[in-house]
Amino acid sequence: MISVSDVNLTFETNDGPVNALKNVSMEVNEGDFVSFIGPSGCGKTTLLRVIAALETPTEGRVTVNNMTPDEARKARQYGYVFQAAGLYPWRTVSGNIKLPLEIMGYSTSEKEDRTRKVIDLVELNGFEKKFPWQLSGGMQQRASIARALAFDANILLMDEPFGALDEIVRDRLNGELLNLWARTRKTICFVTHSIPEAVFLSTKIVVMSPRPGRITDIIESTLPKKRDLNIRDSREFIKIAQRVREGLKAGQSEDVF
C-alpha cells in the first residue's frame, strides 16, 4: 500500500547539509498499524511528511496506493493529523470537520451525514456546536482525528497526535484509536516517541535513529490484533518493548563510534 525504497533526503541549512533520511526502505501493507519511533531528529516526522508529499526526497522511490505521493495527495488518499490539533478557532467542532469536505466539494447532505458519522466515531456527540476553546486538549485532538477521517481516505497519517496530552488521557485515546482502527479498517502510520504507545498500538514498529536519520529495526508485532490496555503487563508486550529499546540503543552506540 505504501512502499518506501532507498530514500535519501538532505536539507540544506545555514550550517551545511543535514542528512535527515539515509537509505530508508520499508513497506506498509493494507490494514497495518505502523509506528515510527525514535529520538528527536531521527527523521520519523520527515518520513511521514515524505509519504504525505509535504517533503520531496532527494533520492529514492516512494509510492502510495501505487501513485507518487504527490498524486496521492491530490487524489486525497490520506488524512493527516498534526501534533497540534490545528482547529480553526472561528469554526465549531462540526464546522471544523466540514472544512475539508467543503474544500473537496461534497454536497450539503453528504457533509451532514459524514460529520455525524465521524462525530459518533470519536464520541464527540453533544459537542458539535462547541468552539475549540471550549474543549479540552484531548477532545480537540479527537475533533482533529474526526476531521481527518471525514473524507474517503483509506490511509491515516498521524504525527505525534497525543504528544501534548497527559498520560491518562493518552491511554484512553490510544484505546479509542485501536477501536477506531478496527472499525474503519484504515491503514495507519503513527509517529511517536513513546515505547509503550508504539508497542500497544502497532502491528509493525519501525525503530529509527538520528544523524543520519535511518531505520535500525523493523519489528512485526506478535500481539493479537484485538487488544486492551491490560496487554501491557503481558510477557509478549514486555519482550517487544525490550526489542524496541535495544533498537534505540543500537542507534545511539553507533553514534559514539
Binding site: A52, L54, R76, G79, Y80, F82, A84, G86, L99, I103
Partner: peptide, 21 residues
C-alpha cells in the same frame, strides 16, 4: 506552517486557502 501544510494535505487551491484560512 502547520495550518498551511494541513490545507496542502487537503489539496486546497490557493484561492481556498485564502478564503478559508
Amino acid at each position: 506552517q502547520i495550518q498551511l501544510d494541513q490545507m496542502k494535505t487537503w489539496s486546497a487551491s490557493s484561492r481556498e486557502i485564502l478564503w478559508y484560512l
